[in-house]
């Protein structure tokens, strides 16, 4: 087949993990002080897409479901070399769990009509832990390959060869297109923004925003209304997990000696302590 490859990268804009807390009064997430970033493995997905484009040509589109304030972050992806960005933004999408998120993304990808390859990150740092990519694939009724370390393409054959990580090793999969592939965090080095593309970034036409009406999906299936799961409670993870935090100091030799003593003492005692379930 001669048609150019159209790759779509699902980018989620997330608050930086280390800057999110829990509001102790209301028990809700406090993101007020957190800056936004592209979910780190999604940057690896984007790099995978751009590397395929470098080798075989074709187009790279970005897609994100989120509020309008993520647009400047999406433009980073355009500056890296993507051709167009689609933002799915509507109050009706808010509060979506995996089922509703993957439905929304899948219907929007189908609306584009000509996407050959959907690339995602392995998991989102704030979220649904790796379930959205299989979800998109299932709504679209196409194959998936997750935890990819390497994605290779045979242009003539419209198949991917995906090397992916599994529990005790690696698998090489032959994956016919169209398909959804999610890539491992740090499987490659995302490139820097291309300064030559900065001029493009003010171009309003490079970002298309779609609302629920554009997707033609029953509102009852979107966002909070379409989510079978709900949050029953929220708390900040226990600080310091009850560790002793004993400071040992001295010269390195003294530290080594004390450390040795502590370790031996602990290991001798651990024979009995080891019987208890670790707390």
């Amino acid at each position: 087949m001669t048609r150019e490859l159209h790759t779509l990268v699902c980018l989620k804009v997330v608050p930086k993990s280390e800057e999110v807390g829990v509001d102790r009064e209301t028990n809700t997430l406090d993101r007020a002080n957190a800056r936004s970033e592209i979910n780190p493995p999604d940057m690896n997905a984007l790099e995978t897409a751009l590397a395929l484009k470098d080798r075989f040509g074709g187009r790279v589109s970005l897609m994100s479901m989120g509020p309008p304030f993520v647009i400047p972050t999406l433009r980073v992806g355009l500056a890296m070399g993507a051709d167009h960005a689609y933002l799915l933004s509507d109050r009706a999408f808010g509060g979506a769990d995996t089922l509703a998120t993957s439905l929304t993304l899948a219907r929007a990808i189908e609306k584009l009509g000509d996407v050959d390859l959907v690339l995602c990150g392995e998991e989102s740092s704030d979220g649904a832990t790796a379930q959205v990519p299989p979800g998109i694939a299932t709504w679209m009724d196409i194959p998936q390959a997750t935890y990819a370390m390497d994605v290779d393409f045979e242009p003539g054959q419209r198949h991917l060869v995906v090397t992916r990580e599994v529990r005790d090793g690696e698998e090489v999969l032959d994956v016919p297109l169209p398909a959804v592939v999610s890539v491992k965090v740090s499987c490659n080095e995302p490139r820097f923004m291309d300064t030559g593309r900065f001029a493009l970034l003010d171009n309003e036409e490079l970002v298309t925003t779609w609302t629920a009406d554009d997707l033609g999906v029953d509102r009852e299936h979107l966002g909070l209304a379409g989510s079978p799961t709900s949050v029953a409670g929220l708390k900040e993870a226990a600080q310091a997990s009850g560790r002793r935090r004993e400071l040992v100091s001295g010269t390195p030799e003294e530290e080594g000696k004390i450390l040795y003593e502590r370790i031996i003492e602990f290991l001798r005692g651990a024979g009995t302590r080891g019987q208890e379930a670790p707390g």
């Binding site: 608050p15 993990s17 280390e18 999110v20 807390g21 829990v22 997430l29 740092s125 704030d126 979220g127 079978p228 799961t229 709900s230 949050v231 029953a232 409670g233 929220l234 708390k235 900040e236 993870a237």
Partner: peptide
């Protein structure tokens, strides 16, 4: 746990 382990949430499916 979300946000790299900083936050714990309890989820149910009614």
């Amino acid at each position: 746990s979300g946000f790299g382990g900083g936050v714990l949430a309890t989820i149910r499916c009614e």
